[in-house]
Amino acid sequence: MESAPKRGFWEAMNNLDRRIIFLILLVCVAIPLLLNVGAPIPPTRPVQLAYDAVESLEAGDVMMVSIDFDATSAPELMPMLRSALRHAFSKDVKVAMLGHIAIGLPLGHMALEEIAAEYDKEYGIDYVDLGYRPGYIAVMIAMGRDIGDIFASDYRGTPLAELPVMTGVRSYDDIELLFGFEHGAVIDYWVRYTQARFSQRMTFGTTAVMAPDAYPYLQAGQIEGLVGGLKGAAEYENLIGHLGLATRGMPAQQWAHLLVIGFIVLGNLGYFFTRRKN
């Protein structure tokens, strides 16, 4: 009986069960997270610019926060949302939240209530949740004329006229800064319909996937800053001096990236050697 041909190291690596790779990756992410090691994360220019945009606001100014993500992107966007809200409330900036992704808006509301409680802010006076209206573009353009046209009431059904935080806030002219949290194409609508038409100041936090698409807007000066992915969120946390999940996740992120680089090198070497042999 003829024995099976002996497989070389590179062939074995090329045919490695993907579940082993998943397991190694899981261990590589879990251990740094459990060890809770961390290091200061210096800010990059796009995040510093986003921070500066919020920093430029004065007490009483209104910052509009747009929740354009859902649970699938929450691990990346919730830390930066919390940091931006902390930054705004620490400066006594008023916050008006809305959202274009219906299923994600409750996540934004949870963060808003949580951070507002930290700073003793009162609903209706210091912040408001306008809720959701379908039709991204129609909502954005209508708010340029009159926010009350599209949001006659907040998410609870309270008329805007009865909410002191919205007193004197009629259109984009009365919104100092828009801070959008994006996991999809809504950022394009904000820039192309709101920034271009109404010259609204805006800055964004995006998932890492979306960040490369948003950089041209930053480079062109259409947006003021960009917080990209968990790394950007960690930088923002360090800037406001309130470290959270993003900073805690950075060592795990670093180890996972090194592991993937190692796998890419191994995969290419394996391909090279087995191709030469064949």
């Binding site: 992410v29 699938t72 990346e76 998932t207 890492a208 968990l230 790394k231 996740g249 795990a252 996972a256």
Partner: peptide, 8 residues
């Protein structure tokens, strides 16, 4: 980076 962030 995004996918690892979700795992984290």
């Amino acid at each position: 980076m995004a996918r690892i962030s979700l795992l984290i």
